[in-house]
Write a protein that binds this DNA or RNA. Structure first.
Lengths: 265, 265
DNA sequence: GCAGTAGTGCGTAAGGCATACGCAGAAAAC
DNA sequence: GTTTTCTGCGTATGCCTTACGCACTACTGC
C-alpha cells in the first residue's frame, strides 16, 4: 500500500505525482491503449453503478463484489479500472455530485448572492447523496472533475472582488467546508424527520451531564435555550435547503470585512 | 443494527435517548452493577490501549482483536464494555484529545484572543493524533466528556459578548469546524514534510486539467500563484500550529461583525 | 498473413475484519 | 446454600479487499 513502483497487476498506482491513475482516466488524460482486447466496461459505468447502489442502500452496501455483480462481471474485473477501493470511492463522490448547476442569470455579478447560491447548490447535492458527505475531505485537496468544476464556479463568482487569487481559493474552501459541516450535523440529526425529538433528547442529555457543576457555561447555554430557540431550525429537504444558515452568514461577513479593508473607497 | 430492543448480549445499545451506553459510562452515569464477578477491565483502559495502538500504527491497526491482544484478553471481552466498534472509536477520539488545556491568564477576557487560543489548542491536539481527525463529526453533535469540556471553554470565552446562547454555540461549532477542515487538508498534504513538493505537483496537475479552456477561472488562479504564494505556508508542527490561518481570521471577522451590529455603541 | 505481445476478464484463495451466540464459572443477593 | 446476574471467552459466520496466475483477445510490426 505504501510502496509505489509499477506492479504487473492493476493500474499503475500513481499517474503523475500523487494523482491516482483512475482519477486521470476520469479526466480523459489517459491515452487509450491500443493493443489487447477491447475493454468491456467503462470507468463511468462502474462509478455510476456504484453510486446507484450507494444511493439505494448506503455506502457500505457498495462493496466491490456488489458493484461487480450489478454490472454482471466478476469482482476482480473492476481492479483493471481502479487500483483500490478508495479510488472508486473518490470517483463515486465526484460522480454523485455531478457537474455543478449553472448559476442563475445575474447572480454572478454579486459575489455574496453568488456564494449563497453556490452554498445552496452544494448543500442540495449533499442532501441527495448523504453517504458521500462523510468522505469528501478524505483524500486531501480536490482533484476530481466535478469538484474542480465547482471550485471554478466559485472563483468565477469572486472574479471582481479585490481578493488575491490565493484568497479566492481559500474563500471557496471556507464556504465549502461550511456546507459540509452543516450538512453533516443536519444529517446526523436525522435529516429533519425526528429533528425536534432528537434535539430535545440531546439538550436533556446535556443538562444531565452538566448538573454537578461541571460544564457551567454549557449548562447556561442549554438553559438559555441554545438548543430549542426558533433559530434552531430543522434542516430542510434538498429543494429548500436553508441558505441563510448562521455559519454561512458569518463567513460571508468575514469575507466582506476583508474586501472592505482591501477596497476602502 | 437498526433494531433497538434489549438484547441479552453486549451492553444495551442505547442508554437514555440516542446516547450510547458506553458514552454514558464514560461520564460515570452508569451505576456499578452489584451482582456478578468483578470486571477485569475498565473502559478507560480499553480506550487508552486503543489510542496507543492508533497513535503508533494508525486507526486501521486498532481493530478489536488487536486492542484485545494488547490488553491480554480475548476479542469478545471488549464487547462487554462497548456495544460496537463505532462506539469505541467515538471514545478513542475523545480520549485522544484529552481535557482541553486551561486558558492562559487574561486571554479569557478578550473573546477574539480566546478563540484564537482555543483554535490553536484544538489544532495542536489534532496534529498529535491525526487518525482522530477524520472521524470527529461522524457521530453527530458532541457527546463525549472532553469534547463537551472544550465546548464549555469556548462558551466561557464568549460569555461577555452580546450573542445569544444559540449564537455562542454556533460560533464555537463554526470555529471548531474550521480547525478541523484546515488540519485535514494540512495532514493530507503530508504534515509539512513534503509540503512544497506536493503543492508543486498539485498546481502542476491543475494546470494540466485546465489547459483546454476548461476551468478558466481555476487556471487564472493557479497562474496567479494561488498555490505558491508565500501565503500558502506549510502547516507547522503541533507546537506552533499556525493560529492566524486565513479561514480563522475570516470567521472571527464575521463574528466581530455580528457583535458590532448587536452592540453598536 | 502471421508472429509477438500487451492487455483483458476472471477463478481461486488468503488473510483480515466485526460480531452473533452460547457456555462455564464468579460473586453478590436472598 | 441456593439463585440470580454478570463475567470473560471459544467458536463460528459471513463479510470484506485484494494478491496472483491463467487463458484468451486483438492489435502491431514484419
Amino acid at each position: 500500500m505504501d510502496t509505489a513502483g509499477e506492479s504487473e497487476h492493476g493500474e499503475d498506482k500513481r499517474g503523475t505525482g500523487a494523482i491516482p491513475a483512475s482519477v486521470e482516466a476520469a479526466w480523459g488524460l489517459r491515452p487509450r491503449p491500443h493493443k489487447g482486447p477491447k475493454r468491456g466496461l467503462t470507468l463511468e459505468g462502474i462509478v455510476a453503478a456504484a453510486v446507484a447502489v450507494a444511493d439505494a442502500e448506503g455506502l457500505e452496501a457498495a462493496s466491490m463484489g456488489r458493484v461487480a455483480k450489478e454490472l454482471g462481471v466478476s469482482t476482480m474485473a473492476l481492479y483493471r479500472y481502479v487500483a483500490t477501493k478508495d479510488e472508486l470511492v473518490t470517483l463515486m463522490v465526484d460522480g454523485a455530485f455531478g457537474p455543478p448547476p449553472p448559476l442563475p442569470e445575474g447572480v454572478g455579478d454579486d459575489w455574496r448572492a453568488g456564494l449563497r447560491h453556490w452554498y445552496q447548490a452544494i448543500g442540495t447535492a449533499m442532501f441527495a447523496h448523504p453517504w458521500a458527505v462523510a468522505h469528501i475531505p478524505s483524500g486531501g485537496p480536490p482533484v476530481t472533475p466535478n469538484q474542480l468544476a465547482a471550485l471554478d464556479q466559485a472563483l468565477y463568482v469572486l472574479r471582481d472582488t479585490p481578493l488575491t487569487e490565493f484568497e479566492k481559493v481559500a474563500t471557496a474552501l471556507l464556504v465549502s467546508n461550511q456546507v459540509r459541516a452543516e450538512v453533516t450535523i443536519a444529517l446526523a440529526m436525522g435529516g429533519s424527520a425526528d429533528f425536534e425529538r432528537l434535539m430535545g433528547e440531546y439538550s436533556h442529555f446535556l443538562l444531565r451531564v452538566s448538573d454537578t457543576g461541571r460544564l457551567p457555561h454549557l449548562r447556561t447555554a442549554v438553559e438559555g435555550g441554545a438548543f430549542d430557540e426558533p433559530d434552531v431550525q430543522a434542516p430542510q429537504k434538498p429543494s429548500d435547503y436553508d441558505e441563510f444558515a448562521f455559519g454561512l452568514e458569518r463567513v460571508l461577513d468575514g469575507i466582506q470585512a476583508l474586501i472592505d479593508a482591501r477596497r476602502p473607497d
